[in-house]
Structures are given as structure tokens and as C-alpha cells.
């Protein structure tokens, strides 16, 4: 884990706001994320945490606020000021997005190798042998057997699909990965394996991560800091273990108390 204090934050979010008519999706959210830092966004369904993630990725356009990202040349760029081409290039090289629904994050009819290789081909790789060996290497890192490289994710279990999504996203060496409930809907034992894999890769690669989860145990295991959202607003934030063990806000206390053992 890099301290990151020398080069400043990787991601700066300020005043991020999105309304759906009269309903608030997300209101005035602000935070910084350092390189190598894992930030969990927790809250119930409808708290605005997924909206926030979509705003950061600019899948949604905000009504107000900015998302700035430190490019590899050190400049802090406002994502809204980048051209569509630049933004998309950034998203498929320097960013990753692990979706809750693997069908949204993967090409279900394309082989595992093709899924991992897509980003490489997207940035100009044109040597089949090298693309394939890089894909094989990454499948190994996410614990998918080498002989499954030509199988499509349709034939994979839920846990394998999520691991494949991780390989597909990490193959270009991104510095920032957004994760939207990556472990929900999986069996507990499968969840544990996936969490451990994410935890290990994040530490090894020094990834900065914004992870949206309703599962406080996931937040505890993976994140350094967390943000608690309710009704589209941030109501509490801080060190993950501090927020979980000494929650200040009534809602956070309720959230923590509602969990069996976080």
C-alpha cells in the first residue's frame, strides 16, 4: 500500500449531485481517494450509493459537482472536461469497473480469454499469441483453471464470473477500480474466496478502490475508509473500523446493530 501523500489524491469528488425529478439520487457528495486506498460506500438500497458510483464513472451525468482524476502525467483532470474519446480510453485502461451483474461486466458469449483480451485489443494489441498468454496469466491470478480459457462465462459459476470480471478489468494495469456489490448474490463460501482474492490483488497491485456494498463485513474486510449514505447524502464517514465500532450517527448505529456480526 502506498502512502500516496507525496503526489496528492488520485480522485477528487466535490459536490456531486444528481436528482431524478424531485427525488434525490445523490446530494453534495465529496471525498478524496489516495492511490492505493480502498473506500467503501455503504447504505441500504436506494441510499444513492450506486448512483454515486455511476456518477463517478460518468455513466450518469451529474446535475452539479465535479469528479477529478489524476492522470498518469500528474495533472488532475476534470472528467467532464475530457473528450468522450479520452474519457473512454481512461476507463478501459486506467480504470476498472466490476459490476454486480456479471452479464453487464462481461461479454457472456465470448470466451474467457477473449473477455480478458478485449482491453488489450482495445489499446492496439494485435499479436494473438501474446494476447492469449497474457489472458492465461490473468486467469491464473484469479484462480480460473487454464483449461477454461476458451469457455464462455455462460458456462461459469457466479463466483467464477466475478473473478473473470476482475481479470478482464485488471489486465491493463488500472490504478482505480470501481466495484458495485461485487460479492452480493454469491454463496457465503464463494464470497469469502472472492473477497480474499480482491483483498490480495488490491494490496499487491496498490489499487485504489471505490466499493459500493450493503454488506458491512465486506466493507470491514476490504476498505480503509468508509462513507455511510442515506437518502442520497453522506451522513458519516471515517476510518472503516472506527465507523463500524464507534458509529456516531443514529442511522449508522442502526445499520451496525442490524448486522449479525460485522
Amino acid at each position: 500500500m502506498s502512502a500516496g501523500a507525496t503526489c496528492g489524491p488520485l480522485l477528487c469528488v466535490r459536490g456531486l449531485t444528481k436528482r431524478y425529478g424531485h427525488r434525490i439520487g445523490c446530494a453534495d457528495v465529496a471525498f478524496d481517494l489516495d492511490p492505493g486506498e480502498v473506500l467503501a460506500i455503504v447504505g441500504e438500497s436506494g441510499s444513492g450509493k450506486s448512483t454515486l458510483l455511476s456518477l463517478i464513472a460518468r455513466d450518469l451525468a451529474p446535475d452539479a459537482g465535479t469528479v477529478r482524476y489524476r492522470l498518469r502525467d500528474g495533472t488532475l483532470a476534470d472528467l467532464a472536461a475530457l473528450s468522450e474519446a479520452e474519457r473512454r480510453h481512461l476507463m478501459r485502461t486506467d480504470w476498472g469497473f466490476i459490476r454486480q451483474d456479471a452479464a453487464q461486466g462481461l461479454r457472456m458469449g465470448v470466451s474467457a480469454g477473449g473477455n480478458v483480451g478485449e482491453r488489450l485489443m482495445g489499446v492496439g494489441a494485435r499479436h494473438y499469441g501474446r494476447i492469449r498468454s497474457t489472458a492465461a496469466e490473468w486467469l491464473g491470478k484469479v484462480e480460473i483453471a487454464a483449461d477454461r480459457i476458451d469457455d464462455p462465462p455462460k458456462a461459469f459459476s457466479g463466483g467464477m464470473r466475478q473473478r473473470l470480471q476482475i481479470a478482464r478489468n485488471l489486465v491493463t494495469g488500472p490504478r482505480l477500480v470501481l466495484m458495485d456489490e461485487p460479492t452480493s448474490g454469491l454463496d457465503v463460501s464463494v464470497q469469502a474466496r472472492l473477497l480474499d482474492l480482491i483483498r490480495r490483488l488490491v494490496a499487491e497491485l496498490g489499487l485504489a478502490v471505490v466499493i459500493v456494498t450493503h454488506d458491512l463485513a465486506v466493507a470491514r474486510l476490504l476498505s480503509h475508509r468508509m462513507i455511510v449514505m442515506r437518502g442520497g447524502r453522506v451522513i458519516e464517514s471515517g476510518l472503516t473500523d472506527q465507523v463500524l465500532d464507534d458509529p456516531a450517527e443514529p442511522y449508522t448505529q442502526l445499520l451496525v446493530a442490524s448486522v449479525l456480526a460485522a
Binding site: E84, A85, R88, R107, V110, S111, G113, G114, G117, E118, R119, L120, M121, G122, V123, G124, R126, Y128, I131, R132, I149, D150
Partner: peptide, 22 residues
């Protein structure tokens, strides 16, 4: 349309990759 507009044609090679893999 977006892919054409931005000349993002990596996907086309995914199709060819799949061919060779298969």
C-alpha cells in the same frame, strides 16, 4: 455508433480472437 465514432475497434479483433481460439 459510439464505437465507430471513436474508432474503437478492439471488439472487432475480439471476434477474430474467438475464431482462432475456437
Amino acid at each position: 455508433r459510439q464505437l465507430h465514432a471513436l474508432a474503437e475497434y478492439g471488439l472487432m479483433h475480439v471476434k477474430l480472437y474467438e475464431d482462432i481460439a475456437r
